[in-house]
Design a protein around this nucleic acid. Structure first.
Length: 736
DNA sequence: AGGTTAGTAATTTTT
DNA sequence: TTACTAACCT
């Protein structure tokens, strides 16, 4: 065939280093690419894809490419397109869940679903499970639904359908009823023609392992398989891949065992550790040249991760001119407030030095740590953004809107109908809802149909009945208009006529304006899809954080959320025993989860390109009270030669001798010590005195302009133009 | 039916 | 400390 991918890309192979090149050119048989942080993993993956096509080994649709996140899938799609110099279509490239859903739709009837099954999100799952538990008469106070949710999810992660739960595994949850509840929950899902996230993989794997014909058809289809982030796969994902790879055995998994940080979500690091045994004849390629960080940063990270036992082993080398660079700083502070001041001051200093704020990140172990930094940055008027909060599609208004669309287009979608039936308030309470549920259950009909029947009787009072009838008529009418008007027009109409928009307009809380914006954005985004169905599929699996990242902002996020990102300057606060490593991992997981915490530390350090500042505070405010803590063991594990320690140790500890006499002596760094407040300071000027009279117009970095209503010591009550009435400290505002 | 208050629990969250 | 839920009152 002549030039199938014209124009031929330039020397795409020549731009790879030898190890990358071998990862790209080893095409036959199983291949494990151990890609350390910043070693060009994505480049290898995409170049390999292109190489398969360029060498004529496969057509684009004959390669299965799997990622974990939509972001990674999108990036890969774009980069493959760029290398081939043309858009790529018809690819089997996507997340585990999206690909599984696509396959499952083709064979849905084999597990009792139809090809138009709905995909439930976590919220729907939780509500459904709760209903099932209530129906089974479980005491929800004694047995919180979340607990069972976790148990079921872990079973699903391991490919266990209700009939496959090993006897030894029967959880003692709710007096040994976990399995039964699991089975009931699954039955409910099938009845609703719905899947939760776990089901997508569970069902398709079940189909592949019991149906040789179908499996063979995929073997014919997929000549090559590419997997990203293999260290994060769970058992069912592994089983799915293994089944599909049985055909040609051309499976290439890319991953880093040192960055496996999701065991609590079902990921099994053993998958990657076991690769060579699972896939006989496997070749392993290590990518160890790092193009991201300076040598001291790499050395510090490598020294730390070397303490782990369960790893395949690799050492990061500085890949190019990064031979020099400043050492990793470890700063000791008196308390968490001082820690926040230190970070704030250094960011301010960097900003004065021309550092781009978008290249600075504060990475924390747990969500609650973000608050202190937010407050500090607000005070300093440094723009920031907290990542990983509520996702766009998880916000209440978006979920409500989607529920309207689902309820409209799918009369059997009970969960959607239930969500919107009394939102906005239509005067339907427990009585009306109970009547609906009862009828639906007795007649085995969808809720919406039951509601319709009830409207024809006098089982509910006239006022709620009229409201309900209006809603039902609207749903039918909107749905009828879909084809004629198009889904975007109808969507706007639904939100308007249902009273939903009005509900938020009337709402006087701070967020309501933002919610209305989000709804507008949602309707706009729908225009990117040909049909409502296409949009709903997208939203279930793909909808992401809306990214209104205008301008350069400091990123504040958890270490987990930072994986895969990189920044010039990284702050890693809160390295204290009990916080990082977290108490819970210490208590529950033993040595294995301590290793995972250490990997998390490794991920944190390797996010930094040039500057890495780790800190710990001797005292920290947790849930309202002060707790004192000792430095994290990870601080001791950093190679001393790569580290610059700051913050005053002024005296020997004066704790009772018994603390130290028992067991192994603590090394000097871990000993509680007296830390001089302010030792880290660059230059600290006293904050300017401020006084605000009632009626003064003021400006606040987060809430915008407002007017002072009342003054009480240093607290002001301010009516903000956008944000409503709030109480803030006077130092957070300035005269407008 | 819906708003208010008291009680309780509290890592990490790719889909 | 906050945020969410469940009983409680109007």
């Amino acid at each position: 065939m002549s030039a199938p991918y014209a124009p031929p890309p330039q020397d795409y192979l020549a731009r790879l280093n030898p190890e990358q090149r071998s990862a790209v050119e080893t095409l036959d048989g199983p291949l494990l690419v151990l890609a350390g942080a910043g070693t060009g993993k994505t480049r290898v993956l995409t170049t390999r894809f292109a190489h398969l096509l360029m060498t004529g080994r496969a057509q684009p649709h004959q390669v299965l490419s799997v990622t974990f996140t939509n972001k990674a899938a999108r990036e890969m799609r774009e980069r493959v397109g760029a290398i081939l110099n043309r858009p790529v279509e018809g690819l089997w490239l996507g997340t585990f869940h999206a690909l599984a859903a696509r396959m499952l739709r083709r064979h849905a009837e084999l597990v009792g679903l139809t090809s138009s099954f709905t995909i439930l999100d976590t919220d729907d799952q939780a509500r459904l499970l709760k209903q099932v538990m209530e129906a089974e008469g479980v005491d929800l106070k004694r047995w919180p639904p979340n607990g069972l949710m976790g148990v079921i999810q872990r079973w699903k992660d391991r490919g266990l359908t209700p009939d496959r739960i090993p006897v030894a595994e029967t959880s003692d949850y709710a007096n040994n009823r976990a399995e039964k509840l699991y089975a009931a929950y699954q039955a409910r899902l099938i009845a609703l023609n719905a899947c939760d996230f776990g089901d997508l993989l569970l069902h398709i794997t079940e189909i592949l392992r019991t149906n040789a014909e179908i499996l063979a058809s995929y073997h014919r289809l997929f000549r090559y398989i590419l997997v990203d982030e293999y260290q994060d796969t769970n058992l069912v994902q592994y089983l799915w891949l293994r089944l599909l790879a049985q055909g040609h055995k051309n499976i290439c998994c890319v991953g880093d065992d040192d960055q496996s940080i999701y065991s609590w979500r079902g990921a099994e690091i053993e998958n990657i550790l076991r690769f060579e045994r699972d896939f006989p004849g496997a070749v392993v390629v290590r990518l160890e040249s790092n193009y991201r960080s300076t040598r001291p940063i790499l050395a510090a990270a490598s020294g730390l991760i070397a303490r782990n036992e369960g790893r395949l082993g690799k050492t990061l080398r500085a890949g190019h001119a990064n031979a020099s660079g400043e050492r990793v700083r470890v700063v000791s502070l008196w308390d968490s407030e001082e820690e926040a001041r230190m970070v704030g001051a250094r960011i301010e200093e960097a900003r004065r030095g021309g550092q781009n704020l978008g290249e600075i990140a504060i990475l924390v172990r747990a969500g609650f740590q973000t608050r202190a930094f937010e407050e500090r940055l607000v005070t300093l008027a440094i723009p920031y953004r907290v990542f990983g909060g509520a996702k766009f599609y998880e916000r209440a208004e978006i979920r409500d809107a989607i529920a309207y669309f689902r309820a409209m287009s799918q009369p059997a979608d009970d969960l959607a109908f239930e969500r919107i039936v009394n939102t906005p308030k239509r005067g339907l309470g427990d009585t009306a809802m109970a009547a609906m549920h009862k009828l639906a259950r007795e007649q085995e009909m969808p809720l919406r149909i039951a509601a319709q029947r009830l409207c024809e009787t006098d089982a509910i009072r006239p006022r709620p009945r009229a409201a309900l009838r209006e809603l039902l008529e609207n749903l039918t009418r909107w749905n009828a208009g879909l084809e004629r008007e198009g889904h975007v027009v109808i969507a706007a109409q639904v939100l308007e006529e249902s009273g939903y928009i009005e509900m938020w307009k009337t709402d006087r809380s701070i967020e309501s304006a933002g919610r209305l914006d989000n709804l507008k954005e949602l309707v706009r985004a729908m225009g990117d899809f040909p049909t409502l169905g296409a949009f709903l599929e997208h939203i279930a699996l793909v909808m992401e954080n809306d990214d209104n990242s205008e301008g350069q902002k400091v990123g504040i996020m958890t270490l987990h959320a930072a994986k895969g990102l990189e920044f010039d300057m990284v702050f890693l606060p809160g390295w204290e025993e009990g916080l990082f490593p977290s108490q819970r991992s210490l208590d529950e997981g033993g040595a294995k989860s301590l290793e995972e915490e250490r990997r998390l530390a490794y991920v944190g350090i390797t996010r930094a390109r040039k500057h890495c500042t780790i800190s710990h505070a001797a005292n920290r405010r947790i849930y309202g009270n002060w707790v004192s803590s000792i430095p994290s063991r990870f601080l001791d594990e950093l190679p001393e030669s790569e580290v610059l320690r700051e913050g005053g140790v002024t005296q020997a500890p004066r704790l009772p001798a018994s603390v130290f006499s028992a067991g192994t002596p603590l090394s000097s760094q871990r000993r509680p010590r007296v830390i001089e407040a302010g030792a880290w300071e660059v230059d600290q000027r006293p904050e300017r005195e401020k006084a605000f009279a009632r009626g003064t117009r003021v400006f606040h970095a987060k809430f915008g302009y407002g007017r002072v209503l009342a003054v009480e010591d240093d607290k002001l009550e301010i009516e903000f133009e956008k944000a409503g009435v709030k109480r803030v400290l006077d130092r957070f505002v300035e005269p407008a």
